[in-house]
Amino acid sequence: MSKTISREEISSMFKDGMTVMVGGFMGVGTPEEIVSIILENGIKDLTLISDDTAFIDTGVGPLIVNHRVKKAITTHIGKNPEAGRQMIAGELEVELVPMGTFVERVRAGGAGLGGILTPTGVGTVVEEGKEKLTVDGRVYLLEKPLHAEVALLKAYKADKNGNLIYRKAARNFNPLMALAADLVIVQVEQLVEIGEIDSNDVMTPGILVDKIFVQGGCE
C-alpha cells in the first residue's frame, strides 16, 4: 500500500479540536507545507505540542497568529510576540515545559512509559501539582507522557517504506514525535525508491511513518 499522499488527502485528515504534535526548533525541521494546509482548510481549536511557537511567519508560528491553537504545550514562546499577547489576553492557553522534560515526555508517550523522573524544575513553579519522588537521596518530579492524534514531521529524504533521513539541525524533535502519535505524516524534500537509502543510514524506521507528503505536492 502506498504511503504517499496528496494535499487533498492530508486536508481530510484534520478536524477541529485535534491534538497535533509538530517537529521543529524555531521553525527549522517543521513541515511548513503541511502547516499551510491546516491554515487553508480552516482547522481550529488545536492543541499544539511543539518545542516553541517559532517566529510569526515560520514553523508553527502562523497557526498561532491565525488563532488556530486553543492550547500550546511548549517550551518557549518568546520569539513569537503574538503567542505572548494571546496568552496574556486569555485567548491562548499555554503550558510551558522545560525543553529536556518536553522531549522526555514525548519519548515516554511514544515508548510505552508511564512518565519520567527528572530533577529539572524542582524548587520552581514547574513542580506545582506534580508528584515528587526521592530516589537514592535525590528529588525528582514525575512528568507524564505526551501523546497526540497526529504528528507532523519534516525529513530530508524518505524511501517509499517511510524510512527517514533528517538533515543537520532539522532533526531535533522529529524522531521522537514519530513514535508518539496515532497518525504520523512526514513532509520530505526527496522521495526515493526502496533500497536507495542504505539501511545503515536510516534515522527513523519506516514502520513508524504512516503517510509521506513530498514537498511541492508532486507524487
Binding site: 518557549h76 514562546i77 525543553m99 522534560t101 524542582v122 520552581t124
Partner: peptide, 17 residues
C-alpha cells in the same frame, strides 16, 4: 509575571545538568 513570559526553553535543564 504579567510582563515578559518567553518560557524557560532549555535553561532549567542546563542549570541542573
Amino acid at each position: 509575571p504579567g510582563k515578559l513570559v518567553p518560557g524557560m526553553g532549555g535553561a532549567m535543564d542546563l542549570v541542573v545538568g
